[in-house]
Design a protein around this nucleic acid. Sequence first.
DNA 1: CTCGAGATAGTCT
DNA 2: GACTATCTCGAGC
Length: 203
Amino acid sequence: MKNLNVIDNLRPLPINFYYQPTLDLARSLLGCILLKDSPEGIAAGIIVETEAYIGPGDMAAHSFQNRRTKRTEVMFGLPGYTYTYSMHTHCLFNVVSGNVNEPEAVLIRGIEPFYNEDLIASRRDNVKKSKDWTNGPGKLTKALGITMNDYGHLLTKKPLWIAEKRSSNFKIEAGPRIGIENSGEAKNYPWRFWISDNKFISR
DNA sequence: CTCGAGATAGTCT
DNA sequence: GACTATCTCGAGC
């Protein structure tokens, strides 16, 4: 078949992929493909930057001290679901990890455009440099069309899913997370992971 | 390219 | 009513 769509070669990761310790999951997600279907078509990117949040002992996590609210509810359930939350005008995308009553999650902070760059660019309006399309947690959700409507969606099926990585030929670096200055000890934990030398990391 | 200033809303106590 | 992180843009390098 001559015009085989690259997307057709990508299988969703099975649900058992999400049953691994959160720090392992944060590393495993690097290189995987995040896809979102919409009326405008499918857009996708390679995950290049993640952060682990391990409540209830992690001061930087929304689920710190088992704080269970309407917003954090999905984190208390099974892994493999979508946790979206809004930050001012932006929507941030997380993958729920940890089993029931283990409210943990992995925040996706950067992706590299992989499929349908035209759609990604148009959603990002006037931004001229391609490296600014998806190099931040709020930018990538806008680029893919991820919204609060995706809260609680299971990530093994459309319209929002994650596919296995196509290559493991990269180095992973780790360091402190971003934007959590007032989180006590937790601010020093090296729970941010990214692919070395990738230009779509957020900083 | 790097830096800093200004704009932006929703959640929870 | 306190708290918060991200994005954009423009200035200086």
